[in-house]
Amino acid sequence: MPPSSSSIRKTVETYLERHPGERDALAGLLAALDRPVDVTARTTLPGHVTCSAVVIDRRCRVLHIRHRATGLMLTPGGHIEPEDRTLVAAALREVAEEAGIPPGSLCLTRRTLGSPVDIDVHGIDANPSKGEPA
């Protein structure tokens, strides 16, 4: 079962304790978390929650994946799946799927446990091949 809106809200509020100046930018996300819908479902529009991971190696290099559709260089990430019990689990699964790095090969930093490094709200182009609007 994917994370609930209330657990995602708790994560967002923890993030906002560290970054109070971002509350206005995240107002739409907070409003979406109050709606009676599954905010993790890719079919929930006008938007839904996805997860990414920042993977940094011992030489301080950051892993980026070239997105096939856009050509953009992005950190590994994507949609939350029904089997993802937490946001962190979703991010770790995406790293494994996109980069082939198993979760057991990664370690979470103490500083970021319980709070995301960043929360971003942005538009996505339509994907007609999947029937997904912008």
Rank of each mutant, 00 (worst) to 15 (best):
P2N: 05
P3Y: 11
S5R: 07
I8H: 10
K10L: 13
K10T: 14
E13D: 06
E13L: 08
Y15N: 07
L16D: 03
L16Q: 00
E17I: 12
G21A: 11
G21S: 13
E22N: 08
E22C: 03
D24K: 14
D24P: 08
D24Y: 12
D24S: 09
L26E: 00
L26T: 02
A27D: 07
A27C: 05
G28K: 02
G28R: 05
G28Y: 07
L30N: 05
L30I: 05
L30W: 03
A31W: 09
A31R: 07
L33W: 06
L33N: 08
D34Y: 14
R35K: 04
P36I: 00
V37I: 15
D38L: 01
A41K: 02
R42I: 15
R42H: 10
T43F: 01
T44E: 14
L45R: 15
P46D: 04
G47E: 14
V49G: 11
C51R: 14
S52P: 06
A53L: 02
A53D: 09
V54F: 02
V54T: 13
V55D: 13
I56E: 15
R61I: 00
L63R: 09
L63M: 03
H64V: 03
R66T: 15
R66E: 14
R66C: 11
H67M: 12
R68T: 09
A69H: 14
T70R: 08
G71A: 01
L74H: 14
L74A: 12
T75R: 10
P76Y: 11
H79W: 08
I80P: 07
I80L: 00
I80D: 04
E81H: 05
E81G: 02
P82T: 02
E83T: 14
D84E: 05
R85M: 12
R85W: 07
V88Y: 12
V88E: 15
A89E: 04
A89W: 11
A90Q: 07
A91C: 00
A91W: 06
R93W: 08
R93P: 01
V95Q: 04
A96W: 02
A96H: 09
E97D: 02
E98M: 06
A99H: 10
A99S: 07
A99N: 07
I101S: 00
I101K: 03
L106T: 07
L108N: 02
L108A: 04
T109Q: 05
R111N: 03
R111Q: 01
R111A: 03
L113Q: 15
G114Q: 14
S115D: 08
S115P: 01
P116A: 10
V117G: 10
D118V: 03
H122T: 10
I124E: 13
N127W: 12
N127F: 13
S129T: 08
K130P: 05
G131E: 02
G131Q: 10
